[in-house]
Amino acid sequence: MRMIIRYFFRTLRLVLTPFMLLSEKLSTPQAMTRSAEEQARADAASKDLALYQFSACPFCIKVRKEIARLGLNIETRDAQHDPQHRSALEAGGGRIKVPCLRIRQEDGSERWLYESDDIKAFLQQRFGQA
């Protein structure tokens, strides 16, 4: 019975993934407008950020939409299909859970922020003022 349930959900995920990704493309908001100087500062600050994510994860989609709305250039790392990123997430963050934002601090240390709402709040607080 477990096997049937597992295959049911895998099939459901395979069927829904293209629709979720298409929905993301169609509903991603326009980037906020900043002056060239403000955008350069945001780009410099976002170089210290990396988002570990799965492409079809609804919580990851929510964070990617916020990144697009804020007009940020944050590197996305596929922790589902890339074993290097997956092991880096587990080693640094302590668990394989997405979305996870890696924040490199000014002193060189790293902070790993889980939970989509916490990531969105961090990004809005740091980059939301235009």
Rank of each mutant, 00 (worst) to 15 (best):
M1N: 07
R2H: 05
I4F: 07
I5L: 15
F8P: 00
R10S: 12
R10W: 07
R10G: 10
L12V: 10
L12N: 00
R13I: 11
L14T: 03
L14C: 04
V15D: 00
L16N: 14
F19Y: 12
M20T: 09
L21F: 10
L22R: 13
L22W: 15
K25R: 15
T28I: 05
Q30V: 11
Q30N: 14
R34E: 01
E38K: 12
Q39V: 01
Q39I: 02
A40E: 14
R41L: 14
D43M: 12
A45P: 02
A45W: 03
S46G: 08
L51W: 15
L51Y: 13
Y52P: 01
Q53C: 03
F54H: 15
F54R: 09
A56C: 10
C57E: 10
P58R: 15
F59I: 04
F59Y: 15
I61H: 05
I61F: 08
I61P: 02
K62Y: 11
V63K: 02
A68S: 12
L70T: 08
G71R: 06
I74R: 03
E75W: 00
T76K: 06
H81K: 11
D82L: 03
P83Y: 03
Q84V: 09
H85Q: 06
R86H: 12
R86V: 00
S87L: 08
A88F: 00
L89Y: 04
E90A: 05
G92K: 00
G92T: 00
G92S: 00
G93M: 05
G93S: 06
G94V: 08
I96Y: 04
I96M: 08
C100Y: 02
R102I: 03
D107T: 04
D107V: 03
G108S: 11
E110H: 03
R111D: 08
R111E: 12
W112Y: 14
L113M: 12
Y114P: 01
Y114Q: 05
D117H: 14
D118F: 02
D118T: 01
A121P: 08
F122G: 02
Q125Y: 01
Q125N: 13
Q125V: 01
G128N: 09
G128Q: 07
A130H: 09
A130G: 12
A130N: 11
